[in-house]
Nucleic acid binder design. Structure first.
Length: 112
DNA sequence: CTATTGACGACAT
DNA sequence: CATGTCGCCAATA
């Protein structure tokens, strides 16, 4: 398509089905909440694909628009980020998430 | 098709 | 609680 009357918020042209699924799930994460790579993986139908999920977000085709910074590791650590984990922590703190020593405070209570 | 890499997870020690 | 090892999946060379 590529015309102006696109219905989707983003143009997933050129991306794989897996990447599109990941981006859609991440997009649903509300502000002030977080989720894990494993949870996203499970949501798209492959509980074991946590790594692949991270890889998909690493490409990050819609960098600041997709709340990819709300996706963290399953053990409560912030995990990685394309622009640096420091940046990720800063963004999370801005949304009300408290980070201590690289880990989310009240992690279990902030999971979506 | 095979090998390597990577924003991970679970388990053993 | 910290570190090490194995496993799993998808993209890329």
């Amino acid at each position: 398509m590529r015309n102006s009357n696109s219905k989707s918020k983003f143009d997933f042209s050129g991306l794989t089905s897996f990447e599109t699924s990941v981006l859609k799930v991440v997009w649903k994460i509300p502000k002030g909440k977080v989720t894990t790579y494993g949870q996203v993986a499970k949501k798209i139908g492959n509980p074991k694909s946590a790594r692949a999920v991270g890889n998909a977000l690493n490409k990050n085709p819609f960098a600041p628009e997709i709340p990819c910074h709300r996706v963290i590791k399953g053990n409560g650590e912030v995990g990685g980020f394309a622009s640096g984990s420091k940046r990720k922590i800063m963004l999370l703190k801005k949304e009300g998430i408290i980070i201590i020593e690289g880990k989310v405070k009240d992690f279990g209570n902030k999971q979506y």
